[in-house]
Design a protein around this nucleic acid. Structure first.
Lengths: 227, 227
DNA sequence: CCCTTATCGTTGCAAATGCAACGTATTATG
DNA sequence: CATAATACGTTGCATTTGCAACGATAAGGG
């Protein structure tokens, strides 16, 4: 069993390896093997389970009104799925989850996670902590991204993103964690439009860059420029 | 004290009015009055508190690299703030919270919320439930909005949004919860561009609408059309 | 070393969008 | 009823963007 992957799973952070087995028994964890393209969750099901990918991978897919399918997320080993819908107590799952490869999945009943067990098992407190952290961190990531991509122009999206990096790094020198294509995808714009705008911003004196090292200029330096 | 507002606060859902007082004591709730523009939280503080607006209102504001301020959220009575950062155990608050009017605010230590109290107070379990639901629901809302506004064109954004409504209503007839301006803001586009595109989509046979009642056509009806 | 591949910038062009302004229908208000 | 306010569609125009294609450079593999 690939339970070692759980040690790197955010839901089981700060839980001792030696405690894991008894915890999983307490949670009544269930393990299933799926073939590629098997459904793990189906749209419309009552959301009570949280899934953990042990091996293989899974896709969270959504079907639109016309029957088109969109992959909303790809979950790798150690990753969770379904936790938002379970914790939100959704009556109907709005998405399906499908095995992207032959996979082993652990399913947990969300109520077993968040309710103290009768044996007052000490892990529950940590588990709840972890679940809250997982949801909250995802929340923060989504909110940040939203701030950037709600801007109307490529320039504004870039400035929003770069500013956030600079502020969190407390420096005007930023090393991007993305290459150009990835940055373009993250900001939901074309790579060529991104490159074009970066050039223009450099020409306008807003910033300088070489490869992935960016330097933001202060307002003073910018307003000093001609024009 | 305006504690009745707490009965409508999602964090205190399904908690009896008669239990509220002892719960707040157990949580060591603190109450503060702020004048307009007073800081409730400051950037950089360690995130341990969750705020609840009892009266007045509060703005979550972010300062960018150049000193510009953006209002990320406006919180009305009954609303929460800071819960994501506390639950994510952020070492540094990336935002400030400022009283938008003279306000009364209740502050709770997040650790007191999520940790069972020594007196095994029965409310804690419900409170944790509620906190998880709040975070998870916000998560779902953000994810949905993200799906829509990550599309490149106004038409795609509209189709994504309308499809979601139709699927969740299980009907091709949709009554919008927004007026045009609100829909445009939600999808991060211009109102005029939205109107223009709606007209074009109707002409192309994708949908029909009158006021806020929209009818989506099936793919069959669409592909049947000339051209 | 050569060849392939990946990354990034550039550019022409058509299409989409933001912006501003205006007209009309509907609703609210005195 | 008269008037104002609001919501919505429309349109002209300048700008921005997506899209496709190409070239340069760097990195990696045989």
């Amino acid at each position: 069993m690939e339970k070692t992957i759980l040690l790197n799973c955010p839901l089981f952070a700060d839980i001792e390896k030696s405690d894991l087995d008894s915890l999983l028994i307490c949670l009544q964890a269930r393990f299933y093997d799926y073939k590629r393209d098997d459904f793990i969750f189906r749209v419309g099901e009552h959301a009570v389970n949280v899934g953990v990918v042990l091996s293989g991978s899974a896709n969270v897919v959504q079907e639109d009104f016309w029957g088109g399918r969109t992959i909303l997320a790809h979950v790798e080993p150690g990753g969770l799925f379904g936790e938002s819908f379970s914790c939100a107590q959704a009556q109907q799952l709005p998405v399906s989850v499908v095995a992207a490869q032959d996979s082993t999945i652990m399913l947990l009943d969300y109520r077993k996670i968040v309710k103290e067990c009768s044996s007052a098992c000490v892990f529950h407190s940590q588990l709840i902590f972890n679940m809250l952290r997982v949801l909250a961190q995802k929340n923060i990531l989504l909110t940040k991204k939203m701030e950037h991509i709600s801007r109307r122009t490529v320039r504004e999206k870039l400035l929003s993103f770069l500013s956030e990096q600079a502020v969190s790094d407390k420096s005007n020198k930023i090393t991007l964690p993305f290459n150009r294509q990835e940055l373009a995808d993250y900001l939901c714009v074309e790579r060529s439009a991104l490159s074009r705008e970066l050039s223009a911003m450099q020409k306008d004196g807003l910033l300088e860059y070489r490869k992935n090292l960016f330097t933001l200029n202060s307002r003073h330096e910018i307003t000093e420029l001609p024009q």
